[in-house]
Design a binder for these strands. Structure first.
Ligand SMILES: [Mn+2]
Ligand SMILES: [Mn+2]
Ligand SMILES: [Mn+2]
Ligand SMILES: [Mn+2]
Lengths: 220, 220
DNA sequence: AATAAAGTTTAGGTAAATCTAAATAAAAGG
DNA sequence: CCTTTTATTTAGATTTACCTAAACTTTATT
């Protein structure tokens, strides 16, 4: 199946929204994710249905078919491998790579992708902690990631962060939060759901719910 | 100046044809190079003129402006650096990389380009022997490249090969011809302009004019 | 259940990049 | 220098991926 860049971006976003829980992905949600208009989403939905990549009935929302899911995982594999390349080999920092990977992911060559993976030592996660599908499109463990604002334990380790906002990643840089960082929850303030945190050898600091929603942790 | 992929491909092809000698690049030549139709070239010529990247008057052919040339060199820089990456780091062979670089070249990030160059050790030539423009768009020496079919000397060294034809590069692989290979011209056959060659420790063999036109050499 | 609000689709259009066929200009040959 | 051939441009379509505004469904609220 030969997909255009636009089609690939739709497939990837549908995958993401399905993963985030929605049973069927709505037109509006997809328009929001892709920063486009609902009418455009409807147009594309018809096309992707025609290509059998999604299940779609008027007013019923969108779901990937098995074939659509396979396509999505292939794009995600390329995206995350390029992010690894940029960080590991070209010394980019984690907030700079998502945008570049958005372009590099559309170079569709299995040989290139597999050689790149090999060159990087077949990494299992990208610079933001997201798992990298293998050449067959299999994702490792369906990792148990709790967003920090919902975590119960007091001692936590950062296992992933959202890669969408450069500003968030820059904020985390400033606070010294990266993958593997160990956090102590000092206090949770109910009134705005902010959280006071402490990292070893550093003064405590407080983060908003906006931020804690985008940090995935596991108990240590 | 923000160029589309199509515009970038036109600019690069115009640069190539100008370099190959034509004073003004003709509509037909450009259509041939880009594997498109003359009518499409005329359409694009109007657009590129509007953007001040080319000088163009109806029926008078096309030339890059200084700005157009700068854009061309930037695209060529990216193209050749990616080719180096694919060969040096991902072990692709020289006939496989041009097509992939055609896509990778369109990721327009100066930071990425410069980091990639640094990562590769700021290479001066690509896997086919073509020079790589530096970050300022300067090309090294206007290298004296003689195509083999016009070379006078008997002992020659291969300094570059055409990167356009996969079949040619595969043929050169089979014959053991690569960059730096030293060749002895045993005989030139006037009737079809074929050339009999010898590489040290190998039996002599004959190549057609088609092939020898695409091998650039210098006397040793 | 009726109505208001929210979500989605359709209708109709635009811009980019292409194409074919027809018209026109330039070049070449006698 | 006139005519044929070749090269180039124009006119008019097509496809993809968008958009706005209007119409239509679904859902929420009274
Ligand atoms: Mn990313
Ligand atoms: Mn993308
Ligand atoms: Mn090339
Ligand atoms: Mn290209």
């Amino acid at each position: 199946m030969n997909l255009s860049i636009a089609e690939e971006n739709y497939i990837k976003s549908i995958y993401k929204l399905e993963e985030e829980g929605q049973d069927a992905v709505t037109t509006n949600a997809l328009a929001g994710e892709l920063d486009t208009k609902p009418a455009s989403v409807t147009d594309m939905a018809k096309k992707l249905k025609e290509k059998k990549l999604i299940a779609y009935e008027k007013y019923q929302g969108i779901n990937l078919t098995p074939e659509g899911k396979k396509a999505a995982l292939s794009i995600i594999r390329r995206h995350r491998l390029w992010e690894c390349f940029l960080v590991d080999k070209l010394s980019f920092s984690w907030e700079e790579v998502h945008e570049l990977a958005e372009e590099l992911e559309h170079v569709r060559s299995e040989k290139l992708t597999n050689r790149l993976s090999e060159f990087l030592g077949n990494p299992q996660i990208d610079p933001h902690g997201d798992p990298i599908p293998d050449a067959q499109g299999k994702l490792g463990k369906p990792r148990v990631q709790t967003p920090l604002h919902k975590a119960k334990a007091k001692r936590l380790e950062v296992v992933a962060v959202s890669d969408k906002s450069t500003a968030l990643l820059e904020f985390l840089n400033a606070k010294g939060i990266r993958l593997g960082t160990q956090l102590d929850v000092i206090e949770r303030y109910e009134f705005d759901n902010s959280i006071e945190l402490k990292i070893r050898n550093q003064p405590a600091f407080t983060i908003s719910e906006q931020v804690s929603k985008n940090i995935m942790v596991k108990p240590i």
